[in-house]
């Protein structure tokens, strides 16, 4: 019994440690005071000012546009790559897997500066396109690593059966193979999407002037004096994630029933 109380206390403390900062930001987002020390009453002012701040709104747009596009491109290239790698000889497989682990093990800051060096060397203008290329680069390996295990679970005769029954190779892929590996493809795509959404390091080095993502915007705001608008922004994002999770959880529960 005592042991159980200790356990609960320990877990409670750790969760408090994890969530205290987040809840604090949420509370302060409703505080009608520019100086975070004291509570001056409830307000929605920071939310209104946030929506009027077009640099934040455009950063939000860039963040989601890059996350969606990079996840989509990475999912297509990565899934094709996983299928190809599955059909390779063991020796070629090892080489390809090592290449795949490269961006996973390489620290983000090195990915960032090395891509910056590449883009400058290629005389590319830093901005939306370079950001997108960078995000696709660190996203593809995660898709490959998510899809590959599904390929190994696949019954190797499935495709042959489809072909024997008169399906074209394309039909066999879309009607037989893809539905089987779809969970891996979706996991990989979602992982890519979240990684892209949360990235700061790589974006910081590969973007040009005027093109911000949310992380970069927050970083520059913490440098140039902090406005309570950041608190409002964090609250919206946190509630958004929570809502998304609730929807996913509900769908998962419905599917079980």
């Amino acid at each position: 019994m005592v042991k159980k109380i200790w356990k609960g206390f320990y877990i409670g403390t750790i969760y408090l440690f994890l969530y205290l900062p987040i809840f604090l930001l949420i509370i302060y987002s409703f505080n009608d005071s520019k100086y975070r020390g004291n509570w001056n009453g409830f307000t929605f002012r920071w939310y209104r000012e946030l929506l009027r701040d077009h640099t934040i709104v455009s950063a939000l747009y860039n963040t989601f546009a890059i996350a969606v596009l990079s996840a989509l491109i990475a999912t297509i290239i990565g899934t094709a790559a996983a299928i190809g790698i599955y059909h390779m000889s063991p020796k070629a497989k090892t080489v390809w897997m090592n290449i795949t682990y490269l961006p996973v093990l390489n620290p983000d800051i090195v990915i960032g500066i090395s891509l910056l060096a590449l883009f400058v060397w290629m005389k590319m203008k830093l901005g939306f396109l370079t950001l997108l290329l960078a995000h696709v680069t660190f996203n593809i390996p995660y898709v490959v690593l998510a899809v590959l295990p599904k390929m190994y679970q696949l019954n190797p005769y499935l495709e042959e059966a489809a072909l024997d029954l008169g399906a074209t190779p394309l039909q066999a892929f879309f009607k037989v193979i893809l539905p089987e590996i779809l969970p891996g493809v979706i996991t990989g795509g979602l992982l890519a999407f979240t990684l892209s959404l949360d990235d700061f390091m790589v974006s910081f080095f590969t973007t040009g002037s005027g093109v911000n993502t949310l992380s970069i915007k927050v970083y520059s705001m913490t440098k140039l004096g902090v406005s309570p608008k950041i608190n409002a922004l964090s609250t919206i994002l946190f509630v958004g994630v929570l809502g998304l999770l609730a929807i996913l959880q509900r769908r998962a529960n419905n599917m079980k029933e």
């Binding site: 290239i77 094709a80 190809g84 795949t100 060096a117 290329l133 696709v136 680069t137």
Partner: peptide, 24 residues
């Protein structure tokens, strides 16, 4: 040959993963 499906990824990795590190 199915291995060729990996070609776009291979190209991408050479240009955006390996070349940058070589430059550094």
């Amino acid at each position: 040959r199915k291995q060729w499906l990996s070609a776009p990824y291979g190209l991408w990795a050479i240009v955006f993963s390996i070349a940058p590190i070589a430059i550094i």
